[in-house]
Every structure is written in structure tokens, then in C-alpha cells.
């Protein structure tokens, strides 16, 4: 099942009317452990507003006077709501209860995948499709209005910011990246004029990474057709990958090593380029 089809469990820590407040340390530890486990947690008190809940499962935890909070205190339109009195439960038992509820409601298990994917700044994006053309892993696509978007988030290679470096407008962010502007920090004139954003990729193998890889592929084919030596083919690929790694220091080695063979790269690059060109052609049609 795709991650976009999974439902999630919302935990509500109820400390309003009809309940006893948790001790400060217990409250912090409960919140902290649930968040570390990937849950969304709402603390409800008599003071302040929280987001409404309209569907999906919700587990309400609290030290309730009557086993559950007064009926008028918890909004539950179409939601499946369960209550759990935690007066007698220690931290481990609370977490266990939440995990059990998650399991029973079929809600998503968190933490299996580090959420690393491109976030597009549409204030900057010009819909040029360079990212779509560049990405070998089909992360990008276009919507019904032919607008570029990140569509297959979990295809993205963890910790790899390569596509953000080919964007001519510095419009691609990875919020968990270490430095700006890729992390979402402001884009400065220096970022744009100095080509800092693109330097790593443009330096890769002396220019257009794909043509360089294609050239290498042709050379390799000629050589390998003579030698028929698989070990040498592997060495060649590793040499190529090593050069990539040296030029783009922040592209993880695992990503470089997981790249397809030069032939496959050439094929995927052609496919991506064709998708981008088709999208651009549709865009021109729409613009009349």
C-alpha cells in the first residue's frame, strides 16, 4: 500500500474538565515518546484551541474521573474514537496501549522511511521541467494543469539533494538538508549569481552529466565488446561513480552506487527528457 493511502492515528492527551492533570514530567515524557514514535499528539486543556478532527482514528488518553471525559468535551463527528484511562499506567504501558490501538485500527506504522523528498517553492518555480528531466527515479511528474510536482516522494534517494542543484531558480528545497538555501533558508543573490547551487552538478564529469555518462557508455561498450570482461565493466562503473562522488560531496555514496548502469542511465535520462518535453509541449498548447 502506498504511504498516501494509509490512515494515521491521532492521540489526544486530554486534561480538561472531568480529568486530573498529569504530573509535569509524565506529561512531557508521554508527549516526547509518542512524537519520537511518529504519532501526532494533541494536548487538550480548557485553555486554547486545537485543530478539529473530522475522520480517521483517534485515541483519547487521560486520567478521567469517570473512565472517560464528559461527552460534550470531545468532538467526534465521523471519527472512530477510543478512550483510555491512564491513571494506573506507567510510560511503557501507555506507549504499548497506543501501539496496540494503532495496530487494531490499521493505522500506519511510522519511522520505516525517512521523509526525504523535494519541496517545490512555487513562488520561484518557472515550470521549466529541468528537475523532471534530470531525476532518474521518477520522483517528479505533472498534475492535470501541467504543473510540476513531486509525486512519488518515497522514490527519492535519502540525503540526495542533486535535483535542487540543477534547478535554475533555486526553487527546490529539502527541508532536512543541512544548509541554505536548499534547507528552505532565503535565497540570496550570491546563490543565484554565483551558480553555487549548480556548481556540483555542472562540474560532474565536465558538464552535462547524462551526455558524459552516455559518452562513457559508448567508450565502455567499445572497450567491453573487445574485452568481454565483466569485472572490468564493474571497475569502470565504480571509477565513474567515484568521480561523481568526488565532484558532488554531498550526494551520498549509497545513492551513487545505486545508480543504474551507464546504459540504463542513458535510457532513463531519455525517458525523463521525453516526459519533460511532452509536459512542456502540453504547456505550450494550454497557453495557446
Amino acid at each position: 500500500m502506498s504511504i498516501t493511502e494509509e490512515s494515521t492515528l491521532r492521540v489526544l492527551l486530554y486534561e480538561g474538565t472531568g480529568s486530573t492533570e498529569l504530573e509535569s514530567e509524565d506529561r512531557f515524557n508521554t508527549m516526547s515518546r509518542l512524537l519520537e514514535s511518529g504519532y501526532t499528539v494533541t494536548r487538550a486543556t480548557g485553555n486554547g484551541k486545537v485543530a478539529s478532527h473530522d475522520r480517521g482514528s483517534m485515541l483519547v488518553l487521560g486520567q478521567f474521573a469517570d473512565g472517560q471525559p464528559p461527552a460534550d468535551q470531545v468532538e467526534q463527528p465521523e471519527a472512530s474514537v477510543r478512550f483510555q484511562d491512564i491513571s494506573e499506567l506507567d510510560q511503557d504501558a501507555i506507549i504499548e496501549t497506543v501501539e496496540k490501538t494503532r495496530d487494531e485500527t490499521g493505522a500506519a506504522e511510522h519511522g520505516a522511511w525517512k521523509p526525504w523528498f523535494p519541496v517545490i517553492d512555487y513562488d520561484r518555480c518557472t515550470n521549466c521541467m529541468q528537475c523532471l528531466s534530470f531525476c532518474l527515479f521518477n520522483v517528479y511528474g505533472v498534475d492535470d494543469d501541467n504543473q510540476i510536482q513531486a509525486q512519488h516522494h518515497d522514490n527519492c534517494k535519502t540525503n540526495c539533494p542533486a535535483c535542487s542543484r540543477v534547478c535554475p531558480e533555486a526553487a527546490i528545497m529539502f527541508p532536512k538538508y543541512k544548509t541554505g538555501p536548499i534547507n528552505g533558508d532565503k535565497v540570496t543573490a550570491e546563490d543565484m549569481s554565483g551558480e553555487k547551487m549548480k556548481v556540483d552538478i555542472s562540474a560532474l564529469l565536465g558538464g552535462d552529466v547524462y551526455s558524459a555518462l552516455r559518452n562513457r557508455s559508448v567508450q565502455a561498450q567499445e572497450r567491453f565488446s573487445k574485452e568481454r570482461d565483466e569485472k572490468k565493466a564493474l571497475n569502470e562503473r565504480q571509477k565513474c561513480m567515484k568521480k561523481l562522488a568526488e565532484s558532488a560531496t554531498d550526494i551520498p555514496k549509497e545513492v551513487l552506487m545505486s545508480l543504474p548502469s551507464p546504459d540504463e542511465i542513458a535510457k532513463k535520462a531519455d525517458e525523463a527528457k521525453a516526459r519533460a518535453e511532452a509536459a512542456l509541449a502540453r504547456q505550450r498548447e494550454l497557453e495557446g
Binding site: T8, M31, G38, T40, R43, N47, H110, P115
Partner: peptide
């Protein structure tokens, strides 16, 4: 926030929620 007495929403990771849509 926990000690403030104010109600609030906390999420494990906004990026993960976005990836899930």
C-alpha cells in the same frame, strides 16, 4: 509548551505528513 497549560497540536514530522498527503 507542556508546562504552559495551553492546548496545542504536536506532530512528529510535518515532512512525513506531507509525503503521506
Amino acid at each position: 509548551l507542556c508546562d504552559s497549560g495551553v492546548a496545542f497540536d504536536a506532530v512528529a514530522d510535518l515532512c512525513e505528513m506531507a509525503a503521506r498527503k
